[in-house]
Computed example of a mutant assay.
Amino acid sequence: MHDPLSKRLWVHIGAFIVALGVAAARKFGAAEPRKKAYADFYRNHDPMKDFEEMRKAGVFRSVK
Rank of each mutant, 00 (worst) to 15 (best):
M1P: 03
H2L: 15
H2Q: 13
H2N: 12
H2M: 12
D3S: 13
D3Q: 14
P4W: 14
L5A: 14
L5D: 14
S6I: 09
R8Q: 15
R8A: 15
H12A: 06
I13N: 04
I13L: 10
G14A: 15
A15L: 11
A15S: 09
F16W: 00
I17M: 03
A19G: 10
L20K: 00
G21C: 05
G21Q: 06
G21R: 07
G21A: 11
V22D: 05
A23G: 12
A23E: 06
A23H: 05
A23C: 11
A23D: 06
A25G: 14
A25P: 03
A25Q: 04
A25R: 10
R26W: 08
K27F: 08
G29F: 01
A30G: 00
A31M: 00
A31D: 10
E32F: 01
E32A: 04
P33E: 01
P33S: 03
K35D: 03
K35P: 00
K35M: 05
A37Y: 04
A39Y: 01
A39C: 04
D40G: 06
D40T: 05
D40I: 03
D40P: 02
F41N: 05
Y42T: 00
R43L: 13
R43C: 09
R43N: 13
N44R: 06
N44D: 11
N44W: 04
N44A: 06
H45Q: 11
H45A: 15
H45K: 09
D46L: 07
D46K: 11
K49E: 15
K49G: 11
K49S: 15
E53N: 12
E53S: 10
E53H: 02
E53G: 09
K56H: 09
K56L: 14
A57E: 11
G58T: 05
V59S: 02
F60S: 07
R61F: 06
R61K: 15
S62T: 12
V63C: 11
V63S: 02
K64L: 08
K64P: 11
